[in-house]
C-alpha cells in the first residue's frame, strides 16, 4: 500500500494530463495549473522558512566529528568541530555541495552467530550525489526556455552534457545519470527489509514523481517530439503574464502537470530539506559552547536580586547588628 498509493497517484496525474490534452483543456493544463503550482511553491516555501525563522534554538547542539578548539597546543579540527562562523560556513558548504555526512553512512549486518557487524556504505552518498547534481544541471539547462536571449551557461552545460554526441537530438549524460541515481535511491528503499519497513508513501512519492518527470521529459526529447519553439513561446507568455493556450503535444502537458505537482507538493513534504538543511542546529551552530554562552530564547525573564540590592535595602539594620558591609 505504501508503494502502490504513490504509484497510482503518479499514473493518475499523467493520465489526467493526457485526458485533459485530448479534451482540449490547454488553458487549464498550460496556464491555470502552472500558475497555481508556482504560487503554492513560493508561498509554501516562504511560509516554511518563516516558521523555522521564528523557532528558537534552545541549546548549542552542533554534531562534532573532530577535536574541538581548546588549548593552544591541541590542534582543533575546524571543519569537523567548527569554532568560528567561517568554519561553520565551510562545513555547511561541504555538506550542501558534496553531502559530507552521507559519506560516513554505515550499514549494520546481522550474520549467523549471531554477529552484528557494521561496515561503511557509500552507495547512498554516491547515488544521492548523482541524483541531486543531475537534477540541478537539468534544471539549469531548462533556462533556455525561460530566458531570451538564452543565458551563457546553458550553451556551456549543453556542450558538456552532450559530450558523447550520440543520437539525435544529442543524448545528455545527466538524463542517464538522474535515472541511475533515482532508480538506485528507490531500490535502496525497496530491496532492504529494514529500509522498506521504515519507508512511507511520502518517501516513495517524490522518487516516483521525479522519476516520471525525468522519463516524460526524455520521452519528449527523444521519442514523442514536440515543437520546442512553441514551448518556449508558451513559457515566455506565462512569465510575462500574457498567457495563451497553445496546442502542443500531449507529452509536454504530461511533463508540465507532473512538474506542477512537484512544485505544489514541494513545500509540504520532505523535499523541504532543500531549505531545511540550512536550519539544522546540529550543522549551523559553531562548537563554541566553552567560549560563548548560548542563551535560550525560551528562558523566562527571571527577576534577579543581587547581593548589592539586598545590602542596600537592609543597610541600617545590618550596620546596627554589626555586620560588615561590602559598600564600605
Amino acid at each position: 500500500m505504501k508503494l502502490l498509493a504513490p504509484l497510482v497517484a503518479v499514473f493518475a496525474l499523467a493520465a489526467l494530463a493526457l485526458g485533459g490534452a485530448a479534451a482540449g483543456q490547454y488553458y487549464l493544463l498550460g496556464v491555470v495549473i502552472p500558475y497555481v503550482a508556482f504560487a503554492l511553491f513560493l508561498f509554501g516555501f516562504s511560509y516554511k522558512i518563516y516558521g523555522w525563522a521564528k523557532t528558537p534554538v534552545p541549546f548549542n547542539i552542533p554534531t562534532t566529528c573532530g577535536q574541538q578548539k581548546a588549548l593552544p597546543w591541541i590542534k582543533g579540527n575546524e571543519l569537523e568541530a567548527p569554532s568560528s562562523t567561517l568554519g561553520v560556513l565551510g562545513r555547511m558548504a561541504l555538506e550542501v555541495l558534496v553531502f559530507r555526512s552521507l559519506f560516513r553512512n554505515t550499514k549494520a549486518n546481522l550474520e549467523p552467530g549471531p554477529d552484528l557487524s557494521y561496515e561503511s556504505d557509500k552507495s547512498l552518498w554516491l547515488f544521492g550525489l548523482l541524483f541531486h547534481w543531475s537534477f540541478l544541471l537539468i534544471f539549469l539547462r531548462h533556462y533556455r526556455f525561460f530566458l531570451e536571449p538564452v543565458p551563457f551557461f546553458v550553451g556551456f552545460l549543453e556542450k558538456f552534457d552532450g559530450l558523447l554526441q550520440i543520437t539525435l537530438p544529442t543524448f545528455y549524460l545527466t538524463d542517464a545519470l538522474i535515472l541511475l541515481g533515482i532508480s538506485a535511491l528507490f531500490a535502496r528503499r525497496v530491496i532492504s527489509p529494514k529500509m522498506r519497513y521504515i519507508s512511507l508513501a511520502a518517501d516513495y512519492f517524490p522518487l516516483m514523481l521525479i522519476g516520471a518527470i525525468a522519463l516524460s521529459g526524455m520521452g519528449m526529447r527523444y521519442l514523442h517530439k514536440v515543437d520546442i519553439a512553441l514551448v518556449k513561446t508558451h513559457i515566455q507568455g506565462l512569465i510575462t503574464f500574457h498567457p495563451e493556450a497553445h496546442v502542443i503535444g500531449a507529452t509536454f502537458y504530461v511533463h508540465l502537470l507532473l512538474v506542477s505537482a512537484l512544485a505544489a507538493y514541494f513545500p509540504f513534504s520532505k523535499l523541504m530539506h532543500m531549505g531545511g538543511v540550512f536550519f539544522s542546529p546540529t550543522r549551523n551552530l559553531a562548537n563554541d559552547s566553552r567560549v560563548n554562552r548560548h542563551i535560550n530564547p525560551w528562558n523566562p525573564q527571571i527577576k534577579i536580586r543581587t547581593y548589592a540590592d539586598y545590602e542596600a535595602d537592609f543597610k541600617d539594620k545590618m550596620k546596627s547588628a554589626g555586620i560588615p558591609l561590602d559598600a564600605d
Binding site: 513560493l42 525561460f146 530566458l147 519553439a229 512553441l230 518556449k232 515566455q236 510575462t240
Partner: peptide, 17 residues
C-alpha cells in the same frame, strides 16, 4: 527568491521568431 523569479522580472522577453 530573486534568482527563482528572475525570469519574471528581468526585462523584455522574446516572442516566437
Amino acid at each position: 527568491l530573486a534568482i527563482l523569479t528572475y525570469p519574471l522580472w528581468s526585462g523584455p522577453k522574446g516572442a516566437m521568431p
